[in-house]
Design a protein around this nucleic acid. Structure first.
Lengths: 238, 238
DNA sequence: CGGTATCCCCCGCGATACTG
DNA sequence: CAGTATCGCGGGGGATACCG
């Protein structure tokens, strides 16, 4: 009775599981193809290892994921079961709902590690030069200090680095963090931001020119905001 | 940072709200047409009034419901906003997922007050005699004592009574509570249960004969269980 | 009856340390 | 690095009383 609702109602039984903190986010990562502990963790920068561990156990018990022993080490990979895959559609719809209607972002939601993770999955490497390209991002987030990270494309494989990758930067991107996230989420127009100097690029002219085509933006950027408020106005303008 | 996830990710922003205890259940009731505090509460027998009150405030702040002052008294009615209605589909899918995959029912989930509430909404009054019909349900739920309630159909309007309604019972239904709930949820076949005497009827022959047509069963009964386990086997048999 | 305020307990969660 | 155990705290949530 602690966690449950004292109802046999299928919605209550589902909520009992999906309502736990972090649970849907963990499922989302696994369903989206993260298979290792670290991979999942990278997609959820603020989860603690103990929390992730607990949730993975619960989700396995609930039949939503399956853990497979790796052959090499004494470690696992995680995979969605049929029950887990059946949640994919629900989770996507929840995210779309969030894009449409959820509260505006607070300062604390502007996590650059998460932005780095998002972007490294949504870089249009086909449009990028062959070989290695190193993008450096430098975001002002007052009153905090600046946040930097690097995305390294190497022939179609993108690595994210929160520390200097040891390669020379090819293109430097600078912006206010909030402003950039608003752009990433589809609330502002990238071209407009570049033209007005809210986002600045430093590097060879041809990379600067090509850059807008590299950013695929958030998966949910196409869904226009419906909630009244600042971001609504922005969405209206674009 | 307390409730949030420190991510601007729309799924995280949505989860922050929908992941709170009781929240989706409250939304579900409002979206399904409960408009008053008591009505919502009747559909969530174990919620405390303070919890319901808090959630209603939160949901209003989040723009998911709107409260309207009633003209007569100093009290409100609750209605879903556009944002709330946009959750209807998600919630229904969650419930279907629950029917397919959620854990088996425990003793504690067998709340007869909730069963009464479910049934009073799903009685096929068109198939019932005109005028008043009083159904009495008497459920054994060992080792607890028996649970009784009454459903009173009065020309198409069904009232649920957890105490004796003051009318004579027209048809008495007796069963083991778990068994009946399994039937209600679609895991067992009603005709089979009646034939085998697991559910017994007492009353005029013609009411007994008509009874199976009165029960519309749970909205989710048509969705066959996919989860391995007891109920899966039952579902397979039907 | 409809709804809120208060209180307090308990356990969910996060930090941290630890182990293979 | 991959994952688990421990521990202490904070606040979410339930009971209850209360007010209109």
């Amino acid at each position: 009775m602690k966690r449950g609702y004292g109802q046999y109602c299928p919605l209550a039984l589902a909520s009992e599981l999906l309502g736990q903190r972090w649970t849907v986010l963990v499922i989302s990562r696994v369903v989206d193809g993260c298979t290792t502990f670290s991979e999942i963790r990278r997609g959820l920068p603020r989860i603690s290892p103990s929390m992730l561990s607990r949730r993975l156990v619960e989700l396995e018990d609930a039949g939503i994921i399956r853990r497979r022993k790796r052959t090499d080490r004494s470690t696992y990979t995680y995979h969605p079961t049929a029950a887990g895959k059946d949640l994919e559609d629900i989770i996507e719809k929840m995210a779309i709902w969030g894009q449409h209607w959820a509260r505006d972002m607070s300062m604390d939601d502007l996590d650059s590690a998460f932005l780095a993770w998002s972007m490294h999955l949504r870089l249009n490497t086909d449009a990028m030069p062959p070989g290695r390209t190193v993008l450096e991002f430098d975001f002002a987030n007052p009153p905090e200090e600046n946040e930097r990270f690097w995305l390294v494309n190497e022939d179609g494989h993108v690595d994210m680095c929160l520390k200097h990758p040891g390669f020379e930067t090819d293109l430097l991107v600078e912006s206010n963090l909030r402003r950039f996230v608003e752009t990433w989420r589809g609330f502002r127009d990238l071209g407009e931001e570049l033209r007005s100097g809210q986002i600045t690029l430093t590097g060879p002219r041809q990379l600067k020119r090509a850059f807008p085509a590299w950013l695929l933006l958030s998966t949910f950027a196409p869904y226009a905001r419906k909630r009244p408020g600042l971001e609504r106005q922005l969405a209206g303008r674009c």
